[in-house]
Design a binder for these strands. Structure first.
Lengths: 212, 212
DNA sequence: TTCCTCATGTAAGTACGGTTCACATGAGTT
DNA sequence: AACTCATGTGAACCGTACTTACATGAGGAA
């Protein structure tokens, strides 16, 4: 092509869009963030990208496939965010955990579109192995962190690190789902979700025998 | 018409249905359980109830209103289930907690339609005060249980019981959301959700200073 | 350059659900 | 017996899902 492509992410460059697939994922992401996983339509995403309603079907078989692409990109960025938070404070495992928790809630808060596509869309994971794998990679970060943590306990009192990772994940996900998304749909709390999660971690880790 | 309505549970009694509102909630409940909160339509619920597609609008302004009615009934039954589990083992607070956890996960497992309407539908709670109130009543059961539990701690080491209730709720909800629903959409675990939650409770309560 | 080819976009069509409105029905009341 | 009003119907309009036949133009081969 001639007029070299620049940043305009909805911009047409002639008859061919040039980057429609990514533009559709972006459009869907914003629509999901605004109106929930059920509130986006292929037609509306096409409109946002400036193409005809039939164009998206060249890239996605149906709406679920587009949703799955959003979720896949979400899991990848989620894993990156968690890994960054984890390594940022690596010398101190407990501080790293608090970082992980903040990163988890921060992602849910700042990227509601991704988060909803990942966890609220009800995508059949069995039908999307790539999604399952990407989710496992994100969970792997958590798992690595709990491994390090559990290693500080004597073998006799060391719990299964997988179980600990699942507990941590569940509490973070529970707080994010119930309280952690924008003013849109949730309840008022006497403390911030971040503080709530941090306090929960501390109690839980104390219960494991760490801390104290 | 003539052939008088018989036992058919969606049964017409003539031109008028007789109980359409409840029949629509029931139909929506089953559709949600099968296909997720986004997978039900007013038209399909009307078809299941044996009425024309316009009839539901006499009872519900739009699909969201019908969804909210499902969620409302869900919260009421949820509160009942939790209260029953809590009182069943009241002498022993820890056993009661385990009962509560099993009841929580059991409800999510056995009533996926209600659970999805309550927590996955993305209903704007601000627009449905009755839902918020019903949710608070269910949470109240949890809150009462943690009050009793916290009362066993000396005042000096007693944590805010509201915070404890939120932690418990978050972990239960996290496990239910991530692992607790049918084979449909979730991951494989090395242990049952019930056992996972019970273990999490025990670690957490130990961290509070109860147990041991 | 010229032409070929194929990925990618468009237009038009079918089917269906959402929603509204004018109208029909019949249960309860008086 | 007649009135009334909640409740259900049918038809209409619009938007979206998805399909199919056709159009465009980018990149490669001659």
């Amino acid at each position: 092509m001639s007029w070299s492509g620049q940043g305009d992410h909805t911009g047409r460059r002639g008859y061919h869009h040039g980057n429609l697939r990514e533009a559709l994922i972006d459009a869907a992401l914003h629509l999901i963030a605004e109106k929930g996983p059920a509130g986006f339509t292929i037609a509306e995403a096409a409109r946002a990208a400036g193409v005809s309603p039939a164009a998206p079907y060249r890239h996605f078989r149906d709406a679920e496939a587009l949703l799955a692409a959003v979720a896949l990109r979400g899991f990848e960025r989620f894993a990156q965010a968690l890994a960054a938070a984890w390594s940022r404070a690596r010398p101190d495992p407990v501080a790293s955990f608090e970082n992980l928790g903040r990163a988890y809630l921060g992602f849910a808060r700042d990227e509601p579109g991704y988060y909803a596509a990942m966890f609220d869309a009800g995508l059949p994971l069995a039908a999307h192995p790539a999604l399952l794998a990407a989710g496992d990679r994100a969970f792997g970060v958590l798992r690595e962190a709990t491994d390090v943590l559990c290693a500080r306990l004597s073998k006799a009192e060391r719990p299964p690190s997988l179980m600990v990772a699942l507990h941590i994940w569940a509490m973070a996900h529970g707080i994010a789902s119930l309280f952690g998304r924008g003013d849109a749909a949730r309840r008022k709390l006497p403390m911030s979700p971040d503080d709530l999660l941090e306090a929960g971690f501390l109690v839980y880790l104390r219960g494991l025998g760490l801390l104290d």
